[in-house]
Each structure stands twice: as structure tokens, then as C-alpha cells.
Nucleic acid binder design. Sequence first.
DNA 1: CTAGGGTTAG
Length: 937
Amino acid sequence: MYSRFGHIERARNVFDKMYERNDASWNNMISGFVKVGLYHEAFGFFRKMYGYGVEASGFSVASLVTACDRSDCMLREGLEVHGFVVKTGLICDVFVGTSLLNFYCTYGPVSLARKLFEELPDRNIVTWTSMIVGYLDNGDLEEAIGMYQRMRREGVCCNENTYAAVISSCGMLGDELLSHQVLGHVVKSGLESNVSVDNALISMFGAFGRMEAASYVFDHMDEHDTISWNSMIAAHAHNGLCEESLRYFYWMRRINKEINSITVSTLLTACGTMDNLKWGRGIHALVVKLGLESNACVCNTLINMYSEAGSSADAELVFQKMPDKDLISWNSMMARYVQDEKCLYALELFAEMIRMRKAMNHVTFTSALAACSDLEFLVVGKIVHALVVLAGLHDNLIIGNALITMYGKSGMMIDAKKVFQKMSNRDEITWNALIGGYSENKEPNDAVESFKLMREDGVPANYITIVNVLGACLTLDNLQKHGMPIHAYIVQTGYEPDNYVQNSLITMYAKCGDLKSSNYIFDHLAYKNSITWNAVIAANSYAGCGEEALKLFAKMRCAGVDLDQFSFSLALSVTADLAILEEGQQLHCLATKLGFKSDHYVINTMMDMYGKCGEMDDVLKLLPLPINRSRLSWNILISAFARQGCFKEARETFHEMLELGLKPDHVTFVSLLSACSHGGLVDEGLAYFASMTTEYGVRAGIEHCVCIIDLLGRSGKLAEAEIFIKQMPVPENDLVWRSLLAACKIHGNLELAKKAAGHLLELAPSDDSAYVLYSNVCATTGRWEDVENVRTQMGSNSIKKKPACSWVKLKDKVSSFGMGDQSHPQTEQIYAKLGELRKMIKEAGYVSDISYALQDTDEEQKELNLWNHSERIALAFGLISTSEGSPLRIFKNLRVCGDCHSVYKFVSGIVGRKIILRDPYRFHLFSGGKCSCSDYW
DNA sequence: CTAGGGTTAG
């Protein structure tokens, strides 16, 4: 009696005091222990009883097997009981047989359960249903249905549980035809009003997307239990009707229906896709109120909800506070870190799991491998690979795919290929990972060869395959050799209508320098959706046709195509590159209006746009909290600070990024090094360059080397710069020498300038900047004959100097000015203003620096020539065309002249306006007589 | 019968 009511201690007392015990005494104790969850006690009693020769009853053995089934660590015990059952003939007891079947279904493989099923001497409805449910739980839906059909053939009746399982299978299979048959059987059996059956029907219709049918079932049920409500909420959520899910939830609360962990889990999943933290946080509060915050599943969905909503900080908090973390909790948190590119954190969690001897599965290893997908972690990656082998998971398909990806991203294609060859199963993802690896590592021949083998192997290519293989063909040579034949293949095999394929074709041609073909493909497409439009906008932007790209964006809007986050990022990045603030702001407004304001990708490009337009305040307004910043956000922030001349902030930002566990990449270092170069921080710059590879595993690229040459050159260490060029880890290019030549100009080093110009002309014979810079050095040092010589040489080589040009943008009109430009309708006013400015600043103490005049004339003429510089004309025009006190933005296509820089400073002080001047190198923010660059640029 | 984690591409 005590055991049956769960008072196991009292039962044990009675049992211990008994003088004489019979079979029932033992059996009752065993089932009593199972009832209260003391599975190991139950098993201990069972062994003792066996030792005493007491006969076990079917009921107690069945409950013992159930105990082994429910406990997640009693596989061995379960097998022992099975042996006992066979020996004693208890296998004939249908309850024992069925519980054993359930045990095998849980511990899998399901084939063992099936074998037992076939051997069982006696079966009932529950046995059959258990087998069907076993298949369902294992995702083997065809077998589940097959079992059901055999059950019917053999004339076994079905109960509500059978139908529920079969209906669920139909839903997961997406087989509507079959569902009609089953529905017929259900109606015939009279179980159509059963709650479990109806609940299953709701889910099934939800899976089919037939919400009206799901609602019909729900509305016509006699009674609803919590599962009915949960099913309705889930069905709506799966069909993207999240608001509707919330409505059912509120209704459920209003009528005081019991809300359980599954209800909130389902809702939280819906909130993750709603891009709306508000609901998520509300439900989180409810979780606490209902006391569900210790439920592992609920917490896991909370982690994922916050992750999806981009709030990693909250996800982390939930994880840390969880009392009982299960495997999925660890896996979820690791996956989140990997997605945030916080690979070190992910690997730390992985290490902790090992230390704490936590159970791991293939998902754990997959995330660990993804965390190692970088050259820096190659050794760790190999260790994880070894652990995978130890765990016996090396033949797992998904793990194999992750291994190929890991080696590919570390640049180790030989290892990737080894893994590939050893795999016993391959799917299209395996091939795609391999081809993607070759493509990313710039091995187009191998990529194309693998693509060929893939087809020969009969593995169907999907759009990702095509995207990958096309991605390997992004140079003009490859376009003819590989790209175009692949295009032909695409046409032949009917991949052409696929939008992702179109996307990559448009991209491929643009990146190979053939924008015309990109536009041609786009123009001739019958069906264009957001992806296609985005692709053509990206192509034009990539090819340097920013204005065309923006026009296409406008056309896309007019065409009524949905703008997505990619459209906005693309258009915003064009406005960023052109530094056109007004258009950028308009896009910001539009993005806000259409609900893309919280998209991290859009936020990042917006920040970049404001940074490149010199609006640091707006960058900081948009900046996410540190914990939620991606590497991209950090890079943008550092480069924005660098461009504004805020070197201290740039450096601090870099260290803050490191502290938060993010890994800097080559872009981070370009920004950081250029900050050092513009700020004259020579020693620091050199130290960062040195640690870049050794500490952070970022290989030095040519762009980093150019920063260093710039850094040394600007600060006057020209000899060091020259030595650096000789010792650089990468082959030199024109940028290197141009940078050195520019430094020679600043410091008037004629001899080195000559050398640098020579190298530059070798590498870029038709480049005007070599001549111009060299002639400028000659002019600065007063070598006027040499200036003339260079001029003649340019003439005979028919090379033209890129003319200087400055422009001001007012509302929707751009006014541009060349040197001494008099073509503007307001020329008179402009020059009057110039005269006025000249007088004013002279009174304020300005003295012109005629060393910036590059023509050989007398001093007075030299000064007059300086006043013909395009940036001054643009300044005068800007001042008379905009309202007093408003900030003024001016652009120049070449580096600003030093004397003009000084004029701008004086003017900003006198007129009391902020003047922002952008040249191709950086921003100058003039205010109150000073410039943000502190005169070092 | 209802709920939670993972691989390629973007």
C-alpha cells in the first residue's frame, strides 16, 4: 500500500521489519522504487531478489525495464534485465515485451527495437503503437507509416495513441494524400473527437500550412487541454503568424488555462523570428513568475531567442544562471559564441565540457570545429579532430562536412581533401564545402575540377555549388577559362531560373571586370526579385558605378520589389563610399520606416556611412552595446576613429575589442595601422605590425605594409621605409612606391623620390601620379628644370595629370570646380567672396606658404596661383550658398594642399562654422581655427 | 499529441 502511494520510506521500514517475505513483498518494493524515481535502488533490490531465488513478477520486471528506459544511464542494466527476461520466459508477458521494446527505442538504434518486435511472442495495441512511436521519434517516418499499414493489414485495432503518432508522421512527411486516408480511418473508428487525436491533427494541418483546417479542428473540439493550445500556438508560429500565436497565448491566460514549459518554449521560438525583443523579454518575465526558469528546455529557447534577436549579453546571462544545463544548453551557447565570432569563448566552453566530463554529441563537435575555422586555431582544430576520432564520430556526415570547412578556412586544403577522401558518406554539402574551400583559397582549377567530379559522381549540384564554383572564377583569365563554360553549363542544366545562380552570375561578371554582361543579364531577366536587384546593385557598386547603383536602388523601389536588409546595406555603402551624407540620411530614414533599423548588418553600414561622412556623433548614436558588437562593428568603429584623427580612441577601441574576446582580422589591422600612421604613432604602429602575425595570427598583407611605409615616410624615417620595402614579407606593388614617393614630397627628399618614381613607373607605366608627385618634389625643392623635364616626358608618353577637382553638394545638386574655374554662373560672387576671405584671414595673421605653389614664377604670382586652387573656390562657393552657422562639406579628388589647409583653418575660425573637407586619404574637420588632424596628415 | 542545439552559401 505504502509503495503504491509513493511513501517509499515507510514501505522500506515495513519491508525491513518483516520476518518473512514472499514474492509480492519484493515485487511491490521494486515497483515502488520505480514509482518515486529511485531507479538504482529498484535495480539493487532486483539483483538481491534474484540472488535469493525469488520469482519476479511480470509487473515488477516491466516497471524495472521502464526505469532503465527513463534513466539516461542504465543501458547496461536494461540489457541485463533483457537477458533475465529471455532466460525466465517472461518475454511471453506482453507488458514486459512492450516495455523492453520501448527501452530499445530509447537507446536505439531503432533497428534493434524492430528485431525485438519481430521476435516477441505476444503483441497488443500498445506494442504496435510503441514501435510506431519509436520510428516517429527516430525521424524514420516512412517506417512508422509502414508499420501502421501492416498493423491494419493484420487486423489489429488502433487506439488514440496510434492515430496521434500516425497523424504526426503524416505532418512531418508533408504527405497530404496519406493524411486523407488516415483521416478516413480515424472517422471510421469514432476517435475523431479524442483530444490527443485532435491535437495531433492541429499540428499536422499546421505543418501543411492549412491554418483554416487547424482552426476548424480546434474550434470544434469538446474540450481543450494545454497541448491543444500549445499546438495552436506552434502551428501559427511555424507559419510565420507570430502575432496570432501571441493572441492564442493571451486568450489562454485569460481563461486561466495551465501554461507549461512547452507553451513558453513555443512562444519564445516565435518571438525570436519576430525581430522583437519586447515580447521575448515579457515572456522571460513570465517564465520567472511561473517558476519555469530552472527548466532546461525553456532556458535553451531563451538563449536562442536572445541570440536571434542579437542580444548575446542576455543569452549569456541566461546560460550562466541556469541551474541544470543539459547538452543542448552547452551546444546552444557554443553555437552563439561561434556566430558572434567569439571563437575563444566557444573553445573555452568546449574545454570546460571536457574538464567537467559532460556528455557531448556531434553537434558539440560541429560547433567546436566551426570555432577553429581559422588559421590561428589550426592546432586546436587538429586536437578537436583527434577528439572526434576518439569519440568515434569521425564517420558522421555532418562532422565530416564541418572538418572540411574547418581545414578549408584554415587554408589547409590538403587536409580537407584527406578528410573528404576518407568519408564513407558524402552529400552535396560535403562537395560544396570542398569546392568552397578551393574557391576561398584561390585555387580555381581545383574548384572547377571538383565540380566536374561532383557531377560525375551523380551528386546533384544546388545553387550553393554554383555560387561557390563561380566564386572561384573572379578574374578575367578565369572568366574565359572557367566562368563562361560554367555559365554554359548552367544554361544547359536549367539552373538559370534560380535566383541565387543569377545573383552569382551577375556578381561573377562584375568582379571579372565585365559590368556590361552583368547589366545585360539583369536587363534580360523576365523575373526579378529582391535578390536579383540586390545583385545588380552590388555589381554596379563593385565596378565603381555608385551613382548607377543608387539609381537602380530607386528603380527597385519604384518597381514595387521588397527592399530587404541587403538592399539597404548596399545602397548605404554606396553613399558611404561617395560620402554623400544627405542620401545616406534619407536611406537611414527609409530603413527606419520599413523596420530595418535594428538589423545589425544595416546598422553597421549606417555607422560606416556616418563615419565616412565625418559624422562621428551619429556613429556613436548607432553603436550597439560592446557585448553585442560583431567584428565588423568593431572594425568600422576603429576605422571611423582613425579617419577622424581620434587616434587614442582608435587604439582604445582595439584593446576593448580584444578584451571582449573578439579576434581582430586583417581589416582591423589596416584601420589600426592607418590610425597610427595618420597620428604619427611610429613606435606603436611598428609594435602592432610585429604582433599582428605572432600574437593574432593575421598574415601581413600588402595593405598593412603600405601603412607601415606611410607611417615611416610621413614621420621622416625615409631610409627606414626604404629598408622596410626590401624586407617586406609580400612582393612590392605600385602602392608601396607611391606611398614612399608621397613621403619624399612631404620631406623634400629628391634623391629617394627619383628612385621611388623609377620603381613606380616600372610597375605602373601609365600612372600619372608618379610623374605628378615627382615633379612636385622637384618643385618643392626648387628644381624647376627637372619639373620642366618631367612635364616634357609626360607629354611624350602622352600621360595626362589627373586634374584637381573639388565639389560641394547642395540638396540635390553637385557643384564642382577645377583649378581657377570660372565656368560657374555665380563666378563673380565666388571670386568676390574669395577676395574677402583673403583679406580677412591676412588680418587674422595668415601668411601664405608659397612652397606649395608648383609653378616656377615670381612670388606674387605664386601666391595668386594658390588662390586658384579648386578647394578654395569650392570653399567660397559653399560659404555663399549655405546658411550661416551650418556645417559645410567639401570634397576633393586629390590630397588637400598644405596652404589651402591653413586657409581653411583661418576661415573656420573667422566665420565660426564647422567645415568638413574630405580628400581620398582622410577627413579634415575644421572648427574654431583648428583642424582635427592636428596638422599631421 | 505540443517545445530547445548542428554542416555548405548569402
